[in-house]
């Protein structure tokens, strides 16, 4: 039986914004097993990014349980969560979010600065990750010297450089042209198939979802049963 990587029970996230009480996620139960590539889909405001943030421990749920890699995230303090995230999670943003003053290799090296690796080992790992995403010849380029697709590939290299158990991607192709988006999705698919990385990707794009092994839909803060899509889904 495949190992469960993510397991949530009645996971709920509510918040108050400008005196309005908002339910961002309502009683979500989801299970992701090792080696899956899950696409979380749904319209804006359906709660898919909120779910991703809760899985990455970037936010805390209002109620319910969330176990990621067997760890109950509600029981950890901020410092422990940061260390856990560094060791187990690779996160890819829609807008790449590279540090502009650092070169590609320095950006990729950043998460490794929190490990016990020596400078030489860190640079070796970062170089390997950049070669894996096809940017071995762009090690010392600054983000502004790269195209959007290349920037996102640097971000992917940064997400996988620590060899995390789980890669989370929040609309990774949202800011890319079709060609670059295809390259990034192919890369994620390769990471899943060749390196058995468990990936959870939030996307609007049905084409992107085709690269995943499984798609789950959210609508109005609720996770629809597996195989079910919203009524107005095209």
């Amino acid at each position: 039986m495949a190992e469960t990587v993510i397991e949530t029970h009645q996971l709920t996230k509510e918040f108050v914004r400008d005196a309005f009480h908002v339910v961002a996620l309502k009683e979500v139960d989801i299970t992701v097993v090792r080696g899956e590539f899950v696409a979380l889909m749904g319209p804006s405001g359906s709660g898919k990014s909120t779910l991703l943030h809760l899985i990455a421990a970037m936010d805390r749920p209002t109620s319910g349980e969330i176990l990621v890699l067997g760890q109950n995230l509600r029981s950890l303090n901020d410092r422990a969560i940061a260390k856990w995230r560094n060791a187990h999670i690779g996160f890819i943003f829609q807008s790449f979010n590279l540090i502009p003053v650092l070169s590609a290799i320095e950006n990729v090296e950043l998460p490794l600065k929190l490990t016990n690796l020596s400078k030489k080992e860190r640079l070796e790992h970062a170089t390997t990750a950049l070669q894996l995403v096809g940017l071995g010849d762009r090690l010392h380029h600054l983000p502004r010297q790269l195209s959007g697709g290349q920037e996102q590939r640097v971000a992917i290299a940064r997400a996988i450089v620590t060899d995390p158990d789980l890669v989370l991607a929040d609309e990774p192709t949202g800011n890319l042209d079709a060609g670059s988006a295809q390259e990034v999705l192919t890369l994620l698919s390769r990471l899943n198939k060749e390196f058995a990385k468990t990936i959870v990707m939030v996307t609007h794009d049905p084409h992107a979802a085709h690269f995943a092994t499984k798609a789950r839909h959210l609508e109005k803060a609720e996770l629809l049963p597996e195989g079910q899509v919203p009524a107005d889904w095209k």
């Binding site: 940061a82 995230r85 560094n86 979010n97 540090i99 929190l114």
Partner: peptide
């Protein structure tokens, strides 16, 4: 401040 969020996502602790 946005970069602080990025660093935290990468695992940088509040102390770091």
């Amino acid at each position: 401040i946005r970069e602080v969020g990025i660093l935290k996502t990468l695992g940088f602790t509040p102390g770091a």
